[in-house]
Design a protein around this nucleic acid. Structure first.
Lengths: 344, 344
DNA sequence: TTTTAGCACTCTCGGGCTGAGAGTGCTAAT
DNA sequence: ATTAGCACTCTCAGCCCGAGAGTGCTAAAA
């Protein structure tokens, strides 16, 4: 498979590089002049020819330069990308933004989305961290009007679920607090299974609350990802290949349809350990919507406890090295923040 | 101002109607054949001419039909729109979707966004309800690790704020609960001003918590709108006038920039009482980004307690009557839901 | 055997031209 | 006041064409 000569690899790299820069088919002459190559354009043409036969390049038409194919990008990303560290200046800029933001996940998530979108000039995807195992942490019952009660459920990890309960009978705030305290004691660090196995209480109202708790925990356990944050939609629209609007629609559709996006994230990132980066080029024959796009995804958080996904969706013609580095760095930052603020 | 003859009004209406249907300039002949008019095309042309001189219509070029201008739409919306009730079938479809959704604001908000986007085939804007006056309802302190504490603050209305506190000293959950109970008693239904005026407690830790509460309430009071939900971005891209992509970018930018959107909502809806509908045509010389767009906004919720905004952003060429009716109906539904689930 | 210079060939792209068609404004008659 | 009729204007799609870009091939050079 990896039968390319060194020179062919260099040329493929350069074509990819030049094409990401200009968004134009790359001609043989352009290449030697742009990168000061010591070989003639004819030689480059010959090599390009073999690369084309191998399926790594293609010509839009007979007398045009070459453009990398999906396979070309794939080969480039898996074998040729040079993982350069993010420039210190960039790292500082990013870190600075987190530093001067308000503390708290609800501020960091949109911030991460915005930082990623700006840095990559593409669409960013950020999901709130979510724990695979749902564990009870704390319950609170707050009297509102008449028999209505606001139930606030805190899960280990820090996720908060709320629900309005209509109780069968009216209780005072003191009574409610007592019930909550009782359940808090009983359910300390309990899993959903453990809660389901517990015997019924004597007070039917307690049972009603327990049922609601179990219900909410059940909902939480079925979530693949937490809240979703997107940013940078307009960046994509600025890309020259989208001058004709139609190719835009499909990838944007993907972002709007949660099930698809969840599927995408579930099938890629969540199978990955934290720190790994997955690159999907052209939808990999699975997501039709992503024909001319690439998605780069990674996971952040604390393993086995609370983790979410970070991603970039952009044109296939994308500065992979830089984008991957940025994504890695933001993931690192976010992991740190999550672990510093873990509720357990 | 309202100097139009009845026939001119009819013709203006028909031009608007026909143009929203076809997205094409409307010719005099087209009009009489499409609507079986009993007058000749020459008469229509004469009337169109005066309407053009009055600034309600314009010609893209000499030998093209007429297109409504901003003023034309404005006149149409304020004087000529016939407020037809939403068909029962549509109402049922919408109500059904709310009925079979899970209960809870966190489900209704995206649902409302999705319903509006689908019904109007445009971009929908939904903000979570938010109360103008911030009032303390309930506080909870939950021990996590070491000296870290999760603070959960519930405001009257039901908004929940959370924050991780790093305490100066380590306390047990019992002690924390005691502190919370103490503050809950002290702050019952207190406003931010009242809290700020209260004397310091003897326990510095209590003061630390109170400061955090005040801080969170301060943040809440500064929010113009709650969380934001958008949907239907792709619908806009399907509009024929956006075949060339460039006009798309500006309105989408507006949606991504929270400050602008907040400004838009604040300046229009929030000045309006609940039930009223505001129509902004072509940005009304204030929002450059909305050149060829119209925004229809309304407010939902419980007056003076908890209210949010619902809106539709679409092309200026938009079925106003239908869209307004839909918006009204969804607002009505949402108001009901909010008032049924009020925490106070 | 590999590289290179040279050249013929192919294809795109923008400009200019053109004829058909759409729709108007005007005029004169009803 | 309305309308039929007509000349006029402007767009639009199609076509041709020449310039330019870039290739593939061949034959010579290294």
């Amino acid at each position: 498979m990896n039968e390319l000569t060194d020179r062919q690899k260099i040329i493929l790299s350069l074509v990819v590089h030049e094409h990401t820069r200009t968004a134009q088919p790359v001609a043989s002459k352009t290449l030697i002049s742009a990168y000061n190559l010591k070989i003639s354009s004819a030689t480059v043409r010959n090599e390009m020819n073999t690369l084309t036969e191998l399926g790594f390049l293609r010509q839009p038409h007979t007398s045009a330069g070459r453009v990398p194919t999906e396979d070309g990008y794939r080969f480039f990303v898996s074998n040729l990308v040079q993982h350069t560290a993010l420039p210190t200046a960039t790292r500082n800029t990013i870190a600075h933004q987190f530093y001067q933001s308000r503390k708290g996940l609800e501020y960091w998530l949109p911030l991460a989305a915005s930082v990623l979108a700006n840095q990559s000039q593409a669409v960013s995807i950020v999901t709130a961290p979510h724990s695979e195992k749902v564990t009870f942490k704390h319950l609170e019952l707050i009297a509102t009007r008449a028999s209505q009660v606001l139930m606030v459920l805190v899960l280990v990890g820090g996720e908060i679920q709320q629900q309005i309960l209509s109780l069968d009978s009216i209780r005072s705030q003191e009574q409610l607090s007592q019930i909550a305290a009782q359940i808090n004691h009983l359910f300390e660090n309990a899993s959903l299974e453990q809660i389901k196995r517990m015997p019924l209480a004597s007070d039917p109202l307690v049972n009603q609350v327990i049922a609601a708790v179990a219900d909410q925990m059940n909902i939480a356990s079925k979530l693949v990802t937490g809240e979703l944050y997107l940013d940078g939609l307009t960046n994509v629209l600025a890309e020259p290949e989208f001058a004709d609007y139609s190719p835009i629609k499909s990838p944007l559709r993907l972002l709007e349809e949660r099930p698809m996006l969840d599927d995408l994230i579930a099938r890629t990132v969540l199978t990955e350990e934290i720190g790994g980066v997955q690159v999907l080029i052209g939808g990999e024959n699975t997501w039709q919507e992503l024909q001319n796009c690439s998605v780069i995804l990674t996971r952040y958080g604390v393993p086995d406890q609370l983790s979410g996904a970070l991603g970039i969706l952009g044109p296939m013609r994308m500065p992979y090295s830089q984008t991957i580095s940025t994504l890695r760095y933001v993931a690192e930052l976010m992991s740190g923040l999550v672990s510093d603020n873990l509720v357990n």
